[in-house]
């Protein structure tokens, strides 16, 4: 008797849990659909604005103001004089420069995640410096030996990075780290001159590329970010 009761109650519990899971999945689906629709709607609206030309002027103005602020900070660092005359000079110079070069500094920026990128980039620097120190020890030991044990070769690999800033980060990191120089980039293919076989093998493992992709949230990391976003929206919808 008790056994059948127990079985029944467990069955019921399982059924309830199953239904709850279905509900949750449905809710998540609707949330994802909802966000997708909203994004589409926003894009349509942006397209309309772009068509009328309003959007372009607005972003240009934003670019000019942002560039002016950054350049003004740089000017203060250089100048070191904070009286009214020099500050006025600085504002005039920076505004003029920003007007001339407003499309350069913010050419390829993806909006929204700048702070995360900055934090990850700062966390990347110590690792890079450690690698550079290793590189220099490597080169010094090579040069100081009487018979230099080098075996130069060219390595070719395809990258998954998209924006130019991430490509620059990867290429300059490669140039600065042990025994490798970026020789050419053509359609996303890196040609790297490596000083020895061991270094070339390490490069093919792609550790550094993954790190750079992680900094700039590219490739497969994008997917993870999207899922996390959906979960957050689900949370807000429930409460």
């Amino acid at each position: 008797m008790e056994v059948t009761l127990l079985l029944e109650s467990t069955d019921n519990a399982f059924r309830v849990m199953e239904r709850a899971r279905e509900h949750a999945v449905g809710l998540l689906d609707t949330a994802v659909q909802f966000t997708a629709e909203q994004t589409r709607f926003r894009q349509e609206k942006r397209g309309q604005l772009l068509f009328t030309g309003t959007q372009k002027r607005k972003t240009q103005f934003q670019n000019i103001v942002g560039t002016t602020i950054i350049l003004l900070a740089f000017w203060m660092l250089l100048s070191g004089k904070f009286d009214a005359f020099h500050l006025t000079l600085g504002v005039i110079c920076c505004a003029l420069t920003a007007y001339l070069f407003h499309d350069l500094l913010f050419a390829n920026v993806r909006v929204g995640d700048m702070r995360v990128i900055a934090a990850r980039f700062i966390a990347y620097i110590p690792w890079l410096i450690e690698q550079i120190i290793l590189a220099n020890i490597h080169v010094a030991s090579l040069v100081l030996r009487r018979k230099m044990p080098i075996d130069p070769q060219i390595v070719k690999f395809k990258t998954k990075l998209e924006t130019d800033i991430s490509c620059v980060t990867l290429a300059n990191s490669i140039t600065l780290t042990p025994g490798t120089i970026t020789m050419d980039i053509k359609d996303g293919v890196f040609y790297v001159h490596a000083l020895s076989q061991k270094v070339a093998n390490e490069l093919n493992a792609g550790d550094m590329e993954d790190r750079v992709a992680h900094i700039f949230m590219e490739a497969d990391h994008l997917y993870v970010e999207d899922v996390l976003d959906a979960a957050r929206i689900y949370q807000t919808l429930r409460t």
Partner: peptide
């Protein structure tokens, strides 16, 4: 070092650090 590229290895890294 024997050729141009390997020489760049020496100056490109060593001078920066």
């Amino acid at each position: 070092l024997p050729d141009f590229f390997t020489r760049l290895h020496a100056t490109g890294k060593g001078d920066t650090l």
